[in-house]
Design a protein around this nucleic acid. Structure first.
Lengths: 324, 324
DNA sequence: AGAGTCTAGTTAAACGTTTTTGTGAGTGTA
DNA sequence: TACACTCACAAAAACGTTTAACTAGACTCT
């Protein structure tokens, strides 16, 4: 690997001048500038990132901390993040905490040690890990907002409202709720958006909380079997919806003939299962892209107030809801 | 962040001695050693990776270059890689090339610039990108072997053979092949393992090549409709199988009643679709873990011959194949 | 003409480590 | 007692950059 010294020697100029050329600093003549640039291209010079990091305290790498890559929601996000980051010359360092606070904490320590310039984080619980407070780099939350942090996510409330409108439109008034965890803002807002849209016209027959990983608790399974005359089951996300449909099918309850189901997220599986899932689509790519843009602004030093950037969502109508 | 200098000052000893303690070098007294270690713990000292990288030429970071995270095959792999890497103190830098050679090349340049110590790579085409030859770091291929490279992958041939045995066992003798791309070793071996297992007893009625992303070409769709009395369709992977089943369903051909289908990979969707897919399961976590271990060995300097590590696969029997 | 300002550079210090070399005290040996 | 040898540590150089401080010459202004 060619160094700045090699360039200096080749052009016959000091290393400082080479550095100034490479960083578009003033006070260097046009002729010399040309020569240096040409030599750099010719030798295929690439700055040694570790050396730069050392001097500047900037690594041009960012951390991406996710709870679980095997949850089909995240790969799309990760892909968008990686691609926009790369287009800005930023390297993405991945942490998959496997849903555990310990892994999350370890990962953040590792990122801190490597001196990443910023972190895009989808938090797993509601606490703030110690390593994160220690690290004074900008952080942008993704998908799961929290007070005091910058965040990029969908308009969950709007999603809930769209579902409520659609439910009424399709003639459903008695609803079963398979909501996500109550400690996640993103789950809470989906639920509230739905419930509070038409409180007088939509009746919530029952509500059970389950995790976003879609695993059905004993309570959820029992409730699904009884159903108490609910004609539409509104699930907290697609994973939950899909698992519910499966469970119902095993017990010879047909969706949408016997009961309708909606999801949330529009993960790719929503198109694959049968019946295909009526759900709320989030602009995942836009969210990922925006998150790195926001992070980059902050890394550049802008002290922007920590507010949330919210994206509109859309209803995708498929076959898991029957018109009654 | 506490530096080695702070430690030295606090203990009243030179930085060299502190460094020696931290790296278990000899020639430092037990008393001093204790004091330094205690001070390190107390100040929460973490070595500055950029500085170490500069001196040692090692970053303790590895690159993970994948073709497409949204292909459900890869997230599991990525998760396993990240987790084992982290347990070894290695940071994983992710590149998602979106299936393009350009992205792959860019990503490798970025990784080279950051000086990763090694690369785990799932190549997208059959060429070797220029940046990779330039970079003289160990590389371990994952999932897609190639001559001249160390590789970790499944025994695809064995998978093909298992499918062939199972086909016969279930009474199928006339087969349609929806094979993966012929330029991918991993596709080729699956196919050959199947075809060559019982050449006299299994008859290949037709064969169409499609991409591993599962998108059905015009030719594939036409052939699927005719089928030419094939009773079993052997798909190159689960994505292809699932898309084929969907396409058939749209045209009122029922799986497995009208025709049976098998997949390959056992991605999580295989359990979700209906009928659930009979397929070949790869030990993805083991592959990821092993790839990291192998890479680490090579990073440590061992000049091991570049051979492939091959994992056994297993047939998972579900409902997409009918006994006839 | 002398003082001040600009320009286009150079020199050297600094970032946090590791490693090479140096050194003084203690130990063993002849 | 003098010699070499080991031990425990210190001093300094080095890795590749950036940047602050400096300098020599050219130009401007009164």
């Amino acid at each position: 690997m060619a160094t700045i010294k090699d360039l200096a020697a080749k052009v016959g100029v000091s290393v400082a001048t080479v550095s100034n050329v490479l960083n578009d600093k003033p006070n260097v003549g046009a002729a010399v500038r040309q020569k240096v640039l040409r030599a750099a291209k010719q030798l295929g010079y690439r700055p040694h990132r570790a050396a730069q990091a050392m001097r500047k305290g900037r690594t041009r790498a960012i951390g991406l901390v996710l709870p679980d890559l095997t949850n089909p929601f995240f790969p799309q996000l990760a892909q968008a993040v990686e691609n926009t980051a790369r287009s800005l010359g930023l390297l993405v360092c991945l942490i998959d905490s496997q849903g555990g606070a310990a892994g999350e904490s370890d990962g953040l320590i590792l990122l801190a040690q490597h001196g990443v310039d910023g972190i895009i984080w989808c938090p797993v619980g509601q606490h703030v890990p110690a390593p994160l407070r220690a690290l004074d780099r900008p952080v942008v939350l993704i998908d799961r907002p929290r007070p005091g942090f910058a965040a990029v996510h969908s308009n969950y409330r709007m999603g809930g409202q769209l579902l409520a409108e659609y439910a009424l439109q399709q003639g459903h008034t008695r609803i079963g709720l398979l909501s996500g965890p109550s400690n996640l803002e993103s789950a809470q807002q989906r639920r509230n958006g739905f419930v509070r849209a038409f409180p007088s016209r939509l009746e919530v027959a029952w509500e059970v909380r389950v995790g976003f990983d879609g695993i059905l608790t004993r309570e959820a399974r029992d409730t699904l079997l009884r159903r108490q005359r609910a004609t539409l089951i509104v699930a907290g996300n697609d994973l939950i919806a899909i698992n519910a449909i499966h469970f119902l099918a095993e017990h010879h309850v047909k969706v949408p003939d016997d009961v309708s189901v909606t999801g949330f997220d529009d993960i790719s599986w929503a198109r694959i299962v049968s019946p295909r899932l009526t759900t709320i689509a989030q602009p995942l790519a836009a969210i990922g892209t925006r998150a790195v843009a926001l992070l980059q602004e902050r890394m550049a030093g802008a002290t922007i107030p920590s507010r949330a950037t919210v994206f509109d969502v859309a209803l995708v109508e498929r076959e898991s809801v029957k018109n009654i």
